[in-house]
Each structure stands twice: as structure tokens, then as C-alpha cells.
Simulated assay, not measured.
Amino acid sequence: MSDHATDPATETFVAHRNLLFTVAYEMLGSAADAEDVLQETWLRWAKVDLGQVSDERAYLVRITTRQSLNRLRTMKRRREAYVGQWLPEPMLTAPDVAEDVELAESVSMAMMLVLERLSPTERAVFVLREVFDVSYDEIAEAVDKSPAAVRQIAHRARRHVDARRPRKMVSPSETRAAVESFRRALETGNPQDLLDVLAPEVVLVSDGGGVKRAALRPIIGAEKVVRFYLGGVGKTGGTITCDPTVVNGTAALVVRLDGELDGIMAIRVEDARITGLYYVRNPQKLTHVESETPLTLR
């Protein structure tokens, strides 16, 4: 009987990999960059003397946070040069992510856009404290601040996020009904059916990355959203099909034009009507929608 035992460093890293990916993704909004951060984390972890590590999970989270912060600062320049609106990279997620209310909210498109408004350090502190329940002392080590400073940053970030996060909980059945009505309306291109399911104050954010047609700014109001859709994708003359799915823990549609993937539309529902649409058309951001990405808070 041969022994193919894995070394302890690798075993520990693999055991926490999904958690570390989730931390990096929530800080960066990009699965590709999160994967790069995990590679950098592994390279540093492989050099650590495990005998000197009392809490392996905390140590790995600290490395991941520092690498994510470094990348966030370089990504800021990349975002400033981005054409049009920037949306997080959507990820196909397993049903258990949607069932975990805390996790689903934290990775939703709506929340990720709110986190984009925070400074890199504020985002790191908020994510570690509010999402992953990391202690102030551990966060202080990860972001190179004092615990007292981290508490102040956490308070400021929490106040900012609370002022902008969606407040109403919606039942899964209510969400499914609204998404199904919206799906049928998109496929038929009926303006009135679209208006019936959209809230008057609905906001559409579309991301084409300069490659696909998208609005340069958010579109606010049901009539304007319908005009934009019917004047764009709906005007191609091709056959539009929409398949329900779950991305980032929330309801979404896979939109295809003549059988070819056109984009992913994440949907926010409140009071039985759609209040938020997040349409990612940039092909470079559609690489994580074919297979499920495991996410976890633990």
C-alpha cells in the first residue's frame, strides 16, 4: 500500500482555499484577480514555518488580505481607464449559497457595487469584520493598523454601506415569479409586459467593457430601461432566449442571442417588482458562468 500523503502546508491551504477565494473575491470583485491573489498567497504560505503559526486560518486570511489590498490599489488605475460602467465578474454559484442569506447578500451584485465606493482599507475592514467575523485584533494585523483605528474604520464603512444596501427581504417564490415574468417579457420584447414587472425607479447598470454595447452611465426609470433594451439587444432581429440561473447567490438570467451567449443579467427584486438590473456583456467577464464556483464564509 503506497503512501501519497500531502504535506501539511498544502493540506491546510486546500482546506481553506474556498474561504480564501471568497475573501479575495469580495475585496476585488474579480474572480480572475482573486485567483491570482490565491496563487500569491500560496507562494508565501509555502515558505512559512508552520511551527511558528498558532492559527493557520487567521494567518492565511491575513496573507490573502494583504495581497488583495496590494492588488486593489493597482486595480484602481485599471478601473479609472475602464470604458463605461464597471460591474463585478459574475459567478455561477451553488444553490446553498443562495440559501445562506448572509453569504448571498455579501456577494450580490448590489452589495459588491456598494463596496466599490469604499477605500481599499475600508473595504478590507468591512469584509473581514462584517462578513467573515474576524476579530479587530486580527484585522489590525492584516491591514497594518491599530485595533482602535480598525474600529473607527469599521464604524465608518458600516455606516456608509448601511445607507446604501437593499433593505427589504424578498421570499424566493416572489423572486421567481418576478424573474419569470421578466424572462417572458424579454423574449417577446413586449414593452407593456416589461413595464408591468419593472419598478418605476428601476436602475439598469450595464457593462460592455468597450467591447459590447452598454450604457456609459446607469439608466434610471422603467420607461428609459425599456427603451434602452428594445433599442439595443431587442432591435437586433435575432432570437433572444433567457434561462434562469443563480449568480453571486441571487437570481439572474443567461441571455442568448441566436444561441450565442450575450450576457448575464443579475436581478434585484423588491415588493414583487424588479428594482435593479446588472447586465454584464463584457466577454472577458463571462468565464465563470459555465460551472459553479464554491464560496464559503467558513
Rank of each mutant, 00 (worst) to 15 (best):
E99P: 05
V125N: 02
S108H: 05
E102W: 01
R123S: 09
R123L: 00
V107F: 00
R117D: 11
M109F: 13
E116D: 11
D100P: 11
P88R: 09
E89R: 06
L87Q: 06
D100I: 02
P88C: 07
M109A: 12
V114I: 13
W86H: 14
R117F: 02
E116G: 08
W86A: 12
V127Y: 01
V83R: 15
E89M: 05
S119M: 05
E105A: 13
T93H: 09
V127F: 01
A94P: 07
D96M: 00
R117A: 09
V83A: 15
T93P: 12
F132G: 13
R129M: 08
G84Q: 07
R78I: 11
M91T: 10
E80V: 14
E130K: 12
V125D: 02
V131D: 03
A81F: 01
L113G: 07
R123Q: 03
R79Y: 14
E89N: 05
R79C: 12
P120K: 07
E130P: 12
L115P: 07
V127R: 02
A110C: 04
E102L: 10
M109Y: 04
V83S: 14
P95Y: 00
L87Y: 04
L103P: 08
E102T: 11
E102Q: 14
E130I: 07
D96H: 08
L128W: 05
T121H: 09
L128E: 10
T93G: 10
Y82T: 03
L115Q: 10
E122I: 08
R77H: 15
M91G: 05
V97W: 04
V101C: 01
W86K: 13
V107T: 05
T93N: 10
A124S: 04
E116S: 11
P95C: 09
R123I: 02
L115F: 09
E122A: 11
E130H: 08
D96P: 11
V114W: 04
R129W: 10
P120C: 06
E105K: 12
T121G: 08
Y82R: 06
R123H: 00
V127H: 01
V127D: 07
Y82S: 08
R78Q: 15
A104Q: 03
Y82C: 02
S119F: 01
E102K: 13
M91I: 11
P88W: 04
S108G: 01
Q85F: 07
M111N: 10
V83M: 12
E89W: 01
F126T: 07
L118M: 06
Q85W: 01
M91D: 03
M112E: 13
L92V: 13
V127S: 07
S119G: 12
Q85C: 14
F126E: 00
R129Q: 13
S108C: 01
M111D: 00
P90T: 08
A124Y: 02
E102R: 14
M112H: 08
F126P: 02
L118V: 02
V125G: 05
L103H: 05
E105C: 04
Q85N: 11
V125P: 03
R78M: 11
L113E: 13
R77I: 10
E130Q: 09
L118H: 05
R123E: 01
